[in-house]
Design a protein around this nucleic acid. Structure first.
Lengths: 234, 234
DNA sequence: CGAGGACAAATTGTTCAACAATCCACCGGG
DNA sequence: CCCGGTGGATTGTTGAACAATTTGTCCTCG
């Protein structure tokens, strides 16, 4: 959702000297709003990994001042979605092979920790079941985007069970960077297909109450995904 | 290191009209530098939980403009050290009981995950041994600040073994918020003393290669600390 | 004497214009 | 073909301005 592109015609900028009535009505927080816009642009691939974030261009496109845009940059940089090089400006993070290893080491801890200690009760398992079903349907239909989305939702739901907003936020940052990795992989012919099946096995272990088995399956799944990605990115 | 206080006399501000030569030579990134300053001020308690962060006062004190200061606010807000209320400005985060629970749920996952999957080889264990020794010495001497510092270093070192920069960064954010919690606890008569002993037991289990036992001890230690804090904060 | 409301002062959110420092792309010389 | 200069573009940062909102004060009324 949220069609990319830009062309959000400049709101303020009537031209006068100082303030000059920016006509802004209720924008709660322009910088946070801009960070949201940029985040989804990056997620959608409208801003590819490595892309330069020109302050002039983006401030014009988003209809905000350079200063406000820079605040948004600071937020995104704190999430590791944007890299700021001194005197060179902001760039969409372009994950290295080492970043991929880092990411999967983090996910291993987050996801297995959530399985071991989280509250994976009825409702949570029900949500996982629904997600797995959607994933398998998407595999059937060969719908790669839905597959990828369901896969991310599955792993996010697991971490959510850990019961920590901070940890879930970290997982969201990790998944956002995963999307960056996927964008960097030129082609991914059915990358996620195999993992839908693996996820259903993890779910089965959880339904059987066998957390140790679920951890084992999860670890294998993450290792396999990491190695498959590293083989393609190098 | 880095004595707190402020009173860093304003650098620029010669008063002229526009630019007016701020005499700034090589400040790599003023906003990041300011964020560092504020972070240590918060860690040291120079800015207490709940304190209002006046833009005018702080920009003067740090010798930077309001816009640059706001960029620093954006960074600290992304770390959950500062809360920004719309039209009310920035405040040092004042952790609630729920935040404490959240924090310990996160730490449980991070630390036990690192013990289970991390590379706790010779060097890492050696560092832990050194930290535990320092902690025990501090307990002997009744030196609370050193005790607290060693305790944080111990848990940080464990998470470092997970081999993920992102996860370690998350741990650093968590520890920064822990410091906020400790500041909020009016008095803590030898809070950390007992945990130095617990840490040495965790270390012993690791030296014996018994990771499962280390995880168990760690979990108990974290639960105990959480409950002790919750009993005092309510 | 306390509740409520009008008004003034302070503060935040945001923009604009300016300028120093730095980087980048181009171009001519060796 | 490589190399160093040169000028334009871009970033980093500042100061001033102003609308919207919050906060504080004081005055009135019940």
């Amino acid at each position: 959702m949220n069609g990319a592109a830009g062309a959000h015609e400049g709101v303020g900028g009537t031209g006068g000297k100082g303030g000059s009535a920016p006509a802004h009505s209720g924008a709660v927080q322009a910088s946070a709003h801009a960070a949201d816009r940029l985040r989804t642009m990056i997620a959608d691939g409208a801003l590819a990994p490595g892309a330069k974030l020109s302050e002039q261009a983006l401030s014009g496109e988003l209809g905000i001042s350079r200063n406000t845009l820079r605040e948004a940059f600071a937020m995104l940089a704190a999430e590791n979605l944007v890299a700021r090089l001194p005197n060179r400006g902001g760039f969409v993070t372009d994950p290295t092979a080492d970043d991929v290893r880092d990411l999967y080491a983090a996910r291993l801890v987050l996801e297995t920790g959530a399985v071991l200690w989280g509250e994976l009760d009825g409702p949570a398992v029900a949500r996982l079941r629904e997600i797995v079903a959607a994933a398998l349907t998407a595999v059937e239909a060969g719908d790669a985007p839905t597959m990828a989305d369901a896969n991310q939702r599955f792993h996010r739901e697991i971490v959510a069970a850990a019961g920590s907003r901070a940890l879930l936020a970290e997982m969201d940052r990790a998944l956002a960077r995963m999307r960056l990795v996927f964008h960097a992989m030129t082609d991914e012919p059915g990358f996620h297909a195999g993992y839908a099946h693996r996820n259903s096995e993890v779910l089965a272990a959880l339904e059987a109450g066998d957390r140790a088995r679920a951890v084992e399956l999860l670890r294998d799944s993450l290792s396999a995904a990491r190695d498959e990605i590293l083989a393609r990115v190098g």
